[in-house]
Write a protein that binds this DNA or RNA. Structure first.
Lengths: 172, 172
DNA sequence: TATTGTTATACTCTATAACTATA
DNA sequence: TATAGTTATAGAGTATAACAATA
């Protein structure tokens, strides 16, 4: 029988892999992520980092008014939890494919503003409902209270991951 | 303000990236996984796939009696959710470092049995408490009921990921 | 001097297919 | 023919450092 507590393992001398949180996170994330990546790439020719940029820009562009300036690579990196290297590459590819438009920032010429082109906005609008449908499909059968608990745990893990590492390396 | 429901996004035309489940899973898993990977590699010189093999063998070796035969690469691949390619490579590296011992199976000479050497068992015994401590550190502050709910959701997502992809590609 | 962004390099993990040796 | 395992190759993502342009 399988131990059912992902966060409370059983005994001290052994470790049941399928109750080990990092393992389970890896497996489930890989399954979800890969399914979605296939959707992006097969239907829209978009990679995951590219999607994150589209999502950030689509969201901000709609929220910002008509003279919304766009987002810099730095903004996108923070918003999408990506390194600046990945953002630079993905953005360059999207600009080349005319999905993004890049405009120089006269006030600080190191950076530039990116926003969705009309084509990019079209792709964004096509992907969003599919992404929602995907998420709904995944969530179907999960109770509201479980969903909320899950959300709390994810939020907690996000904060805890950094400090857990620090704590463990300390007393090594 | 941040939308707090990871599994129930807000409106149809936009998608808030930080409420999108695959994104959140990716980010949290990456944080957790990378923290742990650093621990394995810096202190024990073990990669994540190698750790999965150690964990599977350590667990089974302890459960099985003295004439437990070992596990085949195929067993390890299934148990650790890895492709046979990864298992083959990781196992070869571990055998070379004398952490695993490989014994031919006379009954079916295509496969062979792997088990932990004394050295391997030592490493396993050193890692397990650290892994438990890591998990406990992560879980500290999570209520028992949230942990159970989280477990149910992870389990659900694992099953749902495959079918969600199928459902979405169907009506494309 | 510090920061934005780009390029180069290397490494890990993944995916696929081709191949072997057995069965 | 099918299976266990290995090897080769290519891809995506990450991490790091070096670099150019600008502040």
């Amino acid at each position: 029988m399988v131990n059912s507590h992902a966060l409370r393992p059983s005994d001290g001398a052994t470790l049941q892999l399928d109750t080990f949180l990092p393992y389970r996170l890896n497996v489930v994330t890989q399954a979800v992520s890969q399914a979605l990546a296939r959707l992006y790439s097969e239907e829209f020719g978009i990679s995951v980092p590219e999607w994150r940029i589209l999502a950030a820009l689509g969201e901000a562009q709609r929220a910002g008014g008509p003279d919304w300036p766009g987002m810099t690579a730095r903004d996108l990196a923070r918003h999408g939890s990506m390194g600046k290297v990945m953002v630079s590459r993905a953005a360059a590819a999207l600009v080349q494919r005319k999905i993004l438009v890049r405009k120089a920032n006269a006030a600080d010429r190191r950076e530039s503003f990116l926003h969705l082109s009309r084509k990019g906005a079209g792709i964004y609008m096509a992907i969003v409902p599919r992404a929602h449908a995907f998420q709904e499909q995944l969530a179907r059968g999960i109770s509201a209270s479980d969903a909320q608990a899950f959300d709390r745990v994810v939020r907690h893990l996000m904060k805890a991951a950094g400090s857990a590492e620090a704590a463990l390396l300390e007393d090594a």
